[in-house]
Design a protein around this nucleic acid. Structure first.
Lengths: 238, 238
DNA sequence: CGTCGCTTTGAGGTCCTTCAACCATGGTGG
DNA sequence: CCACCATGGTTGAAGGACCTCAAAGCGACG
């Protein structure tokens, strides 16, 4: 069950100030005084593993700032086919479109912490803070650019290229979050990767194991270690 | 060669007012007085068939408002594989990200008319007009939503579903532009459709001809006539 | 220690691609 | 005027990359 607390850190009115993802999230657009105003609107919530954050098509009562954990964002076809349109990491914002309903569903892969705001209240805040809107727009165009890259991957890359680019993409995202390491944290299942890459889970598994057999990576629980970055990059090199 | 004229309609300072796509483009956010200010910044340009509008990775000196014709937006892989990330129709805006370089290339399929603005000047205008930024943001999130739909199509749809959804999608876009008709205008080549749908041109051709043989559509020059909308929708129905 | 969820691995099949030839159209110049 | 060629579209045959179906392996957990 989702747990809600208005003041997660125990410092009333200062939660945003001490937030670990503040400078990489949309909130970075705000000054210290604006932040404490934002605190008034914020609710800190947690979702346990596999819990639904919101369903595709549901009313978008809240918008979310992910502060911890990884969520999957996906669309479902009526016959059950699924496309994961993205993985949300700490710092990511859910609800960029500020629309009445969610165009995709989201659920927690690991335990997820998030800061949530009433959509209507946040929308009003945006109208008063153009620099926040500009920041939101930057996030949206960044997402659009990623989506277009993913379209190229889905439409024109081979299975091996897809898997490799996924590994490199996740590596880069974790690196930018400061948790640089040779081990790439991958909390999602093979099925999740497959639904992100437009493959079957068996093809993902086979490809990862082939790369491991060729000593380019090592499979570890919840991730991979990249042992030969050169050879990993080669098949997808610019 | 691209032809430039500051005043395409012959009414100095009023080009925007009489613009046919004004109320559907980003400009709809502006008042009449703001529009005449925009005229100062605007240059009307034309691109002939097959002409490049800008290259992937090139400096984004200009942003564009498409006023007529159809352009293809695409990314290229080093080995020549191409993914068309979208078709730009009248009313569409190119340069939403306002970034220093274009993340994708664009060229004219038919003769294209466009209104262009210096990126830096337009960026400054945005800073002074929050409602224009909001409009830009709406365009960006709409594009993002389309891109995510396209990811689902590319990753999880069959060839037949891809082609049908393409036809229905183009039909809807033309309808929204007011040129409703049973004939869907498709100025792009089979290769363009294939690179948009993640298929080979032969598969696109075969699928279209099978639909024609089954009397669901009729192939006409530069488009199709939909003769049995019910049966066309059935395979992709929600 | 048995069960459950996820992953791995194998065998066989299929949807789509590739390669290739042919066809339609339209512009060009002898 | 029409052979000629260029461009884009259609159609066929064969092959392959990936999928589906199936079974077995492997922790984790009660």
């Amino acid at each position: 069950m989702v747990s809600v607390s208005p003041c997660p850190h125990g410092y009333p009115g200062e939660a945003c100030i001490v937030c670990k993802v503040r400078h990489i999230s949309v909130c970075a657009a705000l000054s210290a005084t604006e932040l404490s105003a934002l605190d008034e609107l914020a609710q800190h919530v947690r979702f346990s593993q596999r819990e639904t954050i919101f369903l595709q098509g549901a009313d978008a009562d809240w918008v979310y700032n992910i502060t911890g954990g990884v969520a999957r964002l996906y669309t479902l076809l009526p016959d059950g086919r699924r496309q994961i349109v993205g993985f949300a990491l700490p710092g990511d914002f859910l609800g960029l479109a500020m629309g009445k309903t969610h165009p995709f569903g989201a659920d927690a892969i690991e335990q997820v912490s998030a800061c949530r705001f009433s959509r209507t209240a946040f929308s009003l805040l945006i109208d008063r803070k153009p620099h926040l809107l500009r920041r939101l727009h930057e996030f949206a165009t960044h997402e659009l650019s990623l989506a277009q890259d993913q379209m190229t991957l889905l439409g024109r890359r081979t299975a091996e290229e897809k898997v490799i680019m996924f590994l490199l993409g996740m590596r880069e995202r974790w690196t930018r979050l400061g948790s640089a390491s040779v081990t790439v944290h991958l909390p999602m299942s093979r099925q999740d990767m497959a639904d992100f890459l437009g493959l079957s889970l068996e093809t993902v598994s086979r490809t990862l194991n082939r790369l491991a057999r060729e000593k380019v990576i090592i499979l570890v629980p919840d991730g991979v270690r990249i042992t030969d970055l050169e050879r990993l990059i080669r098949p997808v090199a610019a």
